[in-house]
Amino acid sequence: MRRSIQLQLTIGLLLAGLISGVVMAVFVAHHYGLLSASPPPLMVAWREISDHVIVPILIFTTTFGLCAAIVLRSVTNHLRKETEKATASAQRLDVYLPQADGLPSEIAPFAQSLSDLSIRLKRHAELQEEFAQDAAHELKTPLAIMELELDQVDEPWGSRMKANIQSLAGLIDQLLLLSRSQSAQAADTAQWVDLGEIAASVVGDLAPYAVHRGKDVALRDLGAGSMTGLEEALSTAIRTLTINALEATPEGGSVTIEAGPGRRIVIYDDGPGIPPDRLSSLLARGKRMDESTKSGTGLGLAIASRIVEAHGGEIQSVFPQRSAIEIIFSG
């Protein structure tokens, strides 16, 4: 159980008053022979106890309690301000610097280690971003060499391999974007993005893909909102989820992206629908709905889900009412 310092201090003062009161009462009783064979009259005894025990203890505990309350309030105010500062820094993944003076020497070391932690956290986010960049670069160079080597192969498997190389390169880009989304606030790369515009560009990009497969993709803008984030990452995530919806949709069917109202995107499809628990395992483990389907990997879905999470969003299934998934961004 968590008790406030104020409550603990009050209980402590009351206990100290009580114990010292009893001890002093015993001394006074012994000194004035209150417990002897011939005790003084009751009024006299009461006055002795009141003058030498109750009054001094009351004066002491009240003065001490008041002073303690004043000190405590000033410390609490400082702490509250510092907590607000630290919370704000944590949200931006930024460095937290405690007030140079003003914090009591007992609390200053704690604030300092919090500050050190925030510095290490920011540095960690930057390192992760740098590492992801380097890794993406290192992974793509051999892929680029493979692509050119396959150019000398005039066989059907050559073009299949090329398609695989392209989808691998796409995954590497998605991983890089995920890493950027996670450290976007630290790297100050987050921008103000319009969800309606993102949805429109995804529909526009995927229309040829859908038409080629005898399917339809459409946009319904119900007044989508704006938010801060990485436009390319969000667009990649919504694109992956829409491709998945298109793959679940039979020929002749359609997929509709509904943008808004507010920071909300719903992707409706003509597929069988995904039960909520199936969706969460799909997004968490990166499995495909239908394990037998040909191209690509389920990793894309897991990455899309994490990109949405990094932007403070959540993906839910609207099943069984409709075959659709809903992406809601909070904040």
Binding site: A200, V203, V211, D216, A218, L219, R220, T256
Partner: peptide, 12 residues
């Protein structure tokens, strides 16, 4: 000429 509902048109 395909109508891409809510977005525009496309030639295939």
């Amino acid at each position: 000429i395909h109508t891409v509902r809510g977005v525009g048109y496309m030639l295939t």
